[in-house]
């Protein structure tokens, strides 16, 4: 029973990582294919001063890639999920503000390749689903099918190894020492 629960949890966390991180990678790749278009898209939200827009347009996709890749591989899972979660919340806030102001703006969420669909409440719900996936990883970690888990499982061994090699404690060296 416990084994099934463990398997279910591992699968669920892996799915959350792949969904949250995968969406970011796809979105970033689309955005980076045409950054000037992304700048125009950000400008249409009327939330940022013009001087900041190019900086945001170039850095946001790379932040998405950094957190997305870390999430997919399960490396620093909680931190990556936190970064992705914060980013999703910022995006969701921007989308909601556009809708509350009654503006009809192209989402630009996945660059220009999505056909320029307007922002709808469905876009907000979609982002909240991605945020929920990240929140799950933030709370529970990356699960056993993650790079974190593989690295953590090696740490006790190495520590034990170091402990055993301390002078006087290593059986091999103790055996080699002549009895006094």
């Amino acid at each position: 029973m416990a084994e099934r629960e463990h398997l279910a949890k591992t699968t669920l966390l892996m799915t959350c990582r792949l969904v949250g991180g995968g969406a970011f990678i796809v979105a970033a790749a689309m955005k980076l294919r045409d950054v000037p278009a992304l700048m125009l898209s950000i400008e249409s939200f009327e939330l940022l001063p013009a001087a900041l827009i190019p900086f945001v347009a170039y850095t946001v996709p790379w932040v998405e890639i950094a957190s997305g890749l870390a999430l997919i591989y399960g490396f620093w899972s909680r931190s990556a999920a936190a970064l992705a979660g914060v980013t999703y919340l910022v995006f969701t806030g921007a989308l909601a503000s556009v809708l509350l102001r009654g503006m009809e703006v192209d989402c630009g969420c996945f660059g220009a390749l999505t056909g320029g669909g307007p922002v709808t409440w469905l876009s907000v719900v979609r982002n909240l689903v991605f945020f929920a996936a990240c929140a799950a990883v933030m709370a529970c970690g990356g699960g056993t099918a993650s790079l974190d888990c593989s690295l953590e499982s090696r740490v006790p061994e190495s520590r034990l190894d170091r402990f055993e090699r301390r002078p006087g404690t290593d059986p091999a060296s103790a055996a080699a020492e002549p009895a006094s």
Binding site: L32, V35, M39, T59, W62, E64, W76, A80
Partner: peptide, 28 residues
């Protein structure tokens, strides 16, 4: 976790800024 969060953020911002300097930080 906070340090790792900041490291990931710094990687994204750093690479993005470098990309921006190469691509030109001007509005179209």
């Amino acid at each position: 976790h906070a340090i790792r969060f900041l490291v990931l953020l710094a990687i994204g911002l750093g690479v993005g800024l470098a990309h921006g300097l190469v691509g030109g930080l001007d509005m179209p």
